[in-house]
Structure formats: structure tokens, C-alpha cells
């Protein structure tokens, strides 16, 4: 069977695959928000002078960086019902795993951004009597985040692509839908290449949006 007849055979399923984009994006976006919030908190703990919080944050980060993501996901999805008797949905397991995992990476990115802010900024705020948390929120973090926008965009793109492993716990994302169509038709190349192309286009769009956003943010320089 030729490639083109293969495509025509699954033509009616192509919209079904494409619609997986929303699931993929939803997981990436919700996880990114969780990851960002967690990352900010963890990074503040890491640079703060409460030793136990700094240590806990470092430990948290090393756990998520030191184990395979797919194992983390499997553990959350299959072990949660057995451990706490809560029948966790695949989607919830996905955003928890990805959000918490991303928080670990994000905290390192944000910490490096905070360290890259001129020490004089801390002193100027301090000398004006600005309390620590206000200084962080209003003076330091906005400058830090501006410095790390490219790295954060990268993290989001990685998240979008890596989210494909949620297909292993049955979430109907782009990847999973391609597999479903493939199995139904016993035909692999056309459905997989469709999702392949969609991932690629998606990442290109995100890259361009990221650049536009960066340009906008750098107006005050």
C-alpha cells in the first residue's frame, strides 16, 4: 500500500489527532503555571537564609532531577490509589507530575536569574527600607525573570514535547491519539507523521511567540 493511500485511509481521523493539541497544550500550560509558582517559592527558599528550607528545596530538586520522568508519572498515577486510596485521574496525575517536576527545573532557572541581578539593586532597596518580600516581588524578581525569559521559554517547549509520555497512562493527547488511530488501522506511518508535524509546528509557533514576548519585555532597556 502506498503512502498516499495510507493517508487517505486515515483522513477522517486526522481532525481527531489534531484535536489532541488542546490536551497537550492544556497539560503543558497548567504544568508550567504550577512549575513557575513552585519554582519561585523554591528559588526564594534556596537563596534565603533559613538553612532548613534551603536544604529541603535542594533535596526536592535533586529528587526530580535524579529520576526518570516517566517513572515519576507512573508512580503518581498507579501508586496514589494504593497509597492514599484516591483514584487519581490520568490528567491530574499528569499535571501534578509535570508541574512538580517543572518546579524543580524552574527553581534552578529562577535562582540563576536572581543571582544575575546586580547586588546594588538589593542594596538600593534595602537602603530605602523596603521589606524583604516586597523587594523580591517588586524589584528583584521582575529583573530576574526578564533575564531568564529565554530559559523559561525553553522549559515550556521541553514541557510541551515531553508531555507526550502522558500517553503511557492513557491521556488522549497528540501522541496517544496518533497511536490509537495507528492501532485501529494497523497503519503507523501516516498517523504518527501527522502528530510529528503538529508537534513541530506547535514548537515553532511557541518559539516565535517567545521571541516576540522577549522583544516586548526588553523595551525598558
Amino acid at each position: 500500500m502506498g503512502i498516499f493511500s495510507g493517508f487517505s485511509l486515515i483522513a477522517s481521523s486526522i481532525p481527531y489527532i489534531i484535536n489532541g493539541v488542546w490536551t497537550t497544550l492544556e497539560i503543558a500550560l497548567v504544568s508550567a503555571i504550577i512549575g513557575f509558582v513552585l519554582g519561585v517559592i523554591l528559588s526564594l527558599f534556596k537563596i534565603g537564609n533559613i538553612k532548613i528550607l534551603a536544604w529541603m528545596s535542594d533535596f526536592y530538586t535533586s529528587i526530580f532531577r535524579g529520576t526518570p520522568l516517566i517513572l515519576q508519572l507512573t508512580l503518581v498515577y498507579f501508586a496514589t490509589p494504593q497509597l492514599i486510596g484516591y483514584d487519581i485521574s490520568a490528567f491530574l496525575a499528569a499535571i501534578i507530575t509535570f508541574g512538580f517536576n517543572s518546579g524543580a527545573y524552574m527553581s534552578e532557572i529562577i535562582r540563576s536569574g536572581i543571582n544575575a541581578v546586580d547586588k546594588g539593586q538589593f542594596e538600593a532597596a534595602g537602603a530605602l527600607g523596603v521589606p524583604y518580600w516586597s523587594m523580591m516581588k517588586d524589584i528583584i524578581l521582575p529583573q530576574a525573570i526578564k533575564k531568564i525569559l529565554p530559559a523559561m521559554m525553553n522549559e515550556f517547549i521541553t514541557l510541551t514535547k515531553e508531555s507526550a509520555i502522558v500517553s503511557t497512562i492513557g491521556v488522549l493527547d497528540l501522541m496517544r491519539r496518533a497511536q490509537v488511530v495507528a492501532a485501529e488501522n494497523s497503519l503507523y506511518f501516516p498517523p504518527l507523521i501527522v502528530s510529528f508535524a503538529i508537534y513541530y509546528v506547535l514548537v515553532m509557533i511557541l518559539t516565535i511567540l517567545g521571541r516576540l514576548f522577549e522583544r516586548r519585555m526588553s523595551r525598558s532597556d
Binding site: A125, L128, V130, S134, D138, Q143
Partner: peptide, 26 residues
Amino acid sequence: GMVFQHFHLFPHKTAIDNLTYAPIKV
């Protein structure tokens, strides 16, 4: 108050916002 050799103005705030930030906050 303190004035530094390298100014240390807040780069993401306009001149006037540099001036109003601490009085409002503190």
C-alpha cells in the same frame, strides 16, 4: 538615605516610579 556610586536605580521602573515606589511601599 543613601546615594551610591553606581546609582542603582531600578531599571524596570521609570524615573518617577523610582521615586514613588518606596514612599508608597514603606
